[in-house]
């Protein structure tokens, strides 16, 4: 069974419906055991935040959700990551198809060295979009709250924009191909505070239609944007090195106000390390 055979059924989307679920996920880079035994369910149309100290494997796990770790030859994933009932790491699953349905926004804005218009159109074209391209570009830029700033210079290079604008362009690029899930890997870490606020507002808008998973270093950001929060921690492994694992996963207000684990308490109250 391939991913493309299981079309989502939008009418039955309930807030609690599970989109991605992981079972005993372990991630290795060569001999290095980066992430250990993660079990979690990600709910549709919600913002889920991954928080935790550096090296806890939160970005690594995120990149497994659209198989971007395939680009690293030594990376290996054990366990199961189910998306809409299909195992993402099944042999028959095509990583290209996975990435069409699970989009990604990166830590550093990475617009293509092309015009603003072509940055949006590229993904749609390669995915066989046959509708009105102008309309799609406009709609995507509007939803990324960028349209008013760039509508007069669509032919300019995407690299001519400011950092915050570039990141919103990357978000527009991601939503133009209509993914079901958008992964955001510390999308605001390279942005100034005002741009950060705009991107956060955008996330509230976008979750009406997309499921968003965001990795962030910034706990305030997690508490502002996320419905659900997962706290990861890193622990020294026997024989040197460190591995990351999921400590606690709950509604955001519970994680920040009434965490069950001591290490979560320490981390969210800033008494960490």
């Amino acid at each position: 069974m391939t991913v493309s055979n299981t079309q989502p059924n939008p009418s039955s989307a309930a807030t609690s419906e599970v989109v991605i679920s992981t079972e005993k996920v372990n991630i290795f880079y060569g001999a290095f055991h980066a992430v250990r035994d993660v079990y979690m369910d990600i709910a549709r149309n919600q913002v889920t935040a991954f928080i935790g100290p550096s090296g806890c494997g939160k970005s690594t796990l995120l990149r497994c959700f659209n198989r971007l770790n395939d680009l690293i030859p030594s990376a290996r994933v054990d366990g199961r990551i189910m998306f809409e009932g299909t195992d993402l790491y099944n042999k028959q699953t095509d990583p290209v198809e996975v990435r069409r349905r699970i989009g990604m926004v990166f830590q550093k804005p990475n617009p293509f060295p092309k015009s603003i218009y072509d940055n949006i159109a590229f993904g749609a074209r390669i995915n066989g979009f046959k509708g009105n391209m102008d309309e799609l570009v406009e709609r995507s830029l509007k939803r990324a709250a960028l349209w008013d700033e760039v509508k007069d210079k669509l032919k300019q290079s995407g690299l001519s924009l400011s950092g915050g604008q570039q990141q919103r362009l990357c978000i527009a690029r991601a939503i133009a191909i209509q993914p079901e899930v958008i992964l955001m890997d510390e999308p605001c870490s390279a942005l100034d505070p005002i741009s950060t606020l705009r991107v956060e507002d955008l996330m509230h808008e976008l979750k009406q239609q997309f499921t968003i998973i965001i990795v962030t270093h910034n706990m305030q950001q997690a508490s502002r944007v996320a419905d659900m929060t997962a706290f990861f921690n890193a622990e020294a492994a026997e024989g040197g090195g460190r591995f990351g694992y999921l400590v606690e996963y709950d509604r955001t207000q519970n994680i920040f106000n009434a965490p069950q684990q001591k290490s979560t308490q320490d981390y969210v109250s800033g008494r960490f390390g």
Partner: peptide
């Protein structure tokens, strides 16, 4: 050509050929 640019193209579901021929080579 920065690695992030390739990842961006792969992130929107481009195949290797599409990434290289339309993004990396022109750059």
């Amino acid at each position: 050509v920065p690695m992030e640019t390739r990842q961006g193209a792969i992130g929107v579901g481009a195949t290797n050929f599409q990434t290289i021929s339309q993004i990396v080579l022109p750059a």
